[in-house]
């Protein structure tokens, strides 16, 4: 048997950089270094573990939708051990929202062929965390999301979801869409060998016409939401900082009492 896994990954501005908005109120990607979203590293890791623990013939493909630089994210995933990569890139994609992105991902996943899609729990820039659910809805396959433990056996995916009020064990038949959390297990570092091997791995490039998507289905103009304004949060006014000379706890209590918390 064979198992085709597609891992969706996003190239994001570094969260520790000075992230801001461009004039059109999209995320500015020029001034801050980009990288493979750390939360997607967990998805790559789980896909590789499923592959390593399987007797089947498993192929792990990483897929990204994003600008030219997004290739860096694919390279990182390939150097971790993924087999091949697909880069969907098109000028008309600029400013596409989550609903539009899920369309592009769904079409690309279908074109690539899949038994299992593995995503991260959210991106580290937009942080909506809705793309896996949207993808499942579009593909018409089960959504097995926010897993901190995942396994695949005999065409069934199982996992543990630490939900808002309970821990749930989930189960669904393949094909399915899975998302994994940062509790699922530390992602591996690419080895030197992995980095060298990645250079020879195939990266396919697709544009919207390859996916039969019209330009009026994506992009900023056709987004389902409008950002009307973005303002930097005023810096918090500098607080009082005291050094504990033996009375620090009492001084703090005095402050809290003044604020009516005690």
């Amino acid at each position: 048997m064979s198992l085709r896994i597609v891992v969706t990954v996003k190239y994001v501005p570094d969260a520790t950089g000075d992230r801001h908005f461009a004039d059109d109120l999209t995320v500015d990607r020029d001034d801050v270094d980009g990288l493979l979203s750390e939360l997607d590293e967990y998805a790559v890791e789980q896909a590789l573990q499923i592959s390593e623990n399987s007797d089947d013939d498993v192929e792990v493909t990483v897929l990204t939708v994003g600008p030219e630089d997004a290739k860096d994210a694919l390279r990182k995933a390939l150097s971790m051990g993924a087999d091949k990569a697909i880069h969907v890139e098109d000028d008309d994609l600029h400013g596409t929202d989550a609903i539009g992105t899920s369309l592009v991902l769904a079409k690309a996943v279908e074109k690539a062929g899949y038994d299992l899609v593995v995503s991260g729990m959210a991106s580290t820039d937009g942080t909506m965390g809705v793309v896996p659910a949207l993808l499942a809805e579009r593909l018409g396959v089960p959504q097995v999301t926010l897993l901190s433990e995942v396994s695949v056996e005999d065409g069934v995916v199982k996992g543990r979801r630490d939900g808002d009020s309970a821990t749930e064990q989930l189960e669904a038949s393949l094909p399915a869409v899975v998302s994994v959390t940062d509790q699922s297990g530390e992602a591996r570092y690419p080895s030197f060998k992995g980095i060298m091997a990645a250079k020879k791995k195939p990266v396919e490039s697709w544009d919207l016409s390859d996916l039969d998507i019209d330009e009026d289905e994506v992009g900023l103009e056709n987004a389902y939401t409008v950002v009307e304004s973005a303002a930097e949060r005023p810096a918090r006014t500098a607080g009082t900082i005291v050094k504990d000379e033996g009375e620090g706890g009492k001084q703090l209590a005095e402050f809290l009492a003044g604020q009516k918390f005690i």
């Binding site: 900082i241 005291v242 050094k243 504990d244 620090g248 706890g249 001084q251 703090l252």
Partner: peptide
């Protein structure tokens, strides 16, 4: 708004 530079093992129990 308010910070205490100190060892939490002293400051927290006192608080």
């Amino acid at each position: 708004d308010y910070g205490v530079v100190g060892d939490l093992f002293d400051v927290v129990p006192q608080l």
